[in-house]
Design a protein around this nucleic acid. Structure first.
Lengths: 196, 196
DNA sequence: GAATCCAATACAGTATTCTATATCACAACT
DNA sequence: AGTTGTGATATAGAATACTGTATTGGATTC
């Protein structure tokens, strides 16, 4: 099931990982079991409010209620403080990034001939561009694009390109088919979409 | 009961009352039952995280994760903007609309058994919810949902459901596989995190 | 006094969380 | 090869969230 809470949970997970706390260590501090935390983080179960609070408190976080209107302000506040030595130049808006990436792919197709992998990348980029990506997801995309740029002219570009294509597609699938729980109907093929 | 969540819940209740929204009205917008809300507010039961989020979102609030250190700052920010008379738009935000629709589908699956069409609708809704829809597109979705609500119990629901599923899927495909490269309004709502 | 709208409460049934314990596969390091 | 730490998973059972529906008593307003 696609839950409304996945953002919050993903955030908590990121912070846990960033602070190098293992699920086990956290479980002791928060008073939950490791298995429980694993299932929550992997989206296999939806925590109760109090479990979630326990979890976040153990990470030195507070759950707060903020008027929608103020969300950007708070976000700014938190972000400013959170990464004092993180040099993520927030410069380029995502949209431009995608535009550049698509141009790059086009150029590669033109130079080295088109391939199934390049086609896949192009297609997936076009898709991802339209979606609201979480920071974490955007980060992944950024990395993949950077890698593509780095290896574009390399001799062994082929396997790298394939890997990038696979990663992008995986991300895409995780967004397009976010439901891990339903008994998958037989008609749903593993990879592509049912679209036609 | 006296749990960690007492505060948050009390806060939510205060805001509900300040906005003069009855439990019943809120229950409809949040997709919970009035009885449920009453028990939550009176501390007789601890809501799940997602129930709580549904609740707060219906009150135009966001649940956010804030480093303990920054809590006073955020508190100040929120309080400064304190609500002289906050009232809630009658217009349902899209998010709520989707939540309701998904809930409806779930109910239908439960009542009449799940079908390929219902699965498809569920899947597609989950997808569309994540995407930036243009006004025109959102309008279509709204109409389709309204139709689903109207026909949910009808005798000839089946063909209607199928038609709705088809329409939704077509919309989805047009987004996932845009024919030409198209610009999109880059608009990032509430997804924020402090990245590691 | 009747009619509303409100919140609280009850109750039956289902679905899910949550605990506790254990295991597995995969790393990294000795 | 063995040890250790990681996260993912399995299973079984107790607890409880959640739905739906319905009723209650209180406060209003006509």
């Amino acid at each position: 099931m696609a839950y409304q809470s996945e953002n919050l949970i993903a955030q908590a997970r990121e912070i846990r990982e960033a602070s190098r706390v293992s699920q086990r260590a956290l479980s002791e501090r928060a008073g939950l079991t490791q298995s429980h935390i694993s299932q929550i983080e992997s989206g296999k179960m939806e925590p109760g409010l109090s479990s979630f609070i326990d979890l976040t408190r153990a990470l030195d976080l507070e759950v707060m209620l903020v008027p929608k209107k103020l969300v950007p302000a708070v976000l700014g506040l938190v972000k400013a403080q959170a990464t004092p030595d993180m040099h993520i130049h927030a410069g380029q808006p995502n949209d431009k990034r995608f535009a550049r990436a698509e141009r790059l792919v086009k150029k590669m197709k033109h130079l080295y001939g088109s391939s199934a992998d390049l086609d896949r990348i192009e297609d997936t980029l076009r898709f991802l561009r339209r979606v609201n990506l979480r920071d974490q997801e955007m980060q992944l995309v950024r990395e993949l694009i950077a890698r593509l740029e780095r290896y574009q002219a390399s001799a062994q570009a082929a396997p790298v390109v394939r890997d990038i294509a696979q990663n992008l597609q995986r991300l895409r699938n995780s967004i397009a088919h976010p439901a891990p729980s339903e008994p998958r109907p037989a008609y749903s093929l593993d990879d592509g979409d049912a679209d036609a």
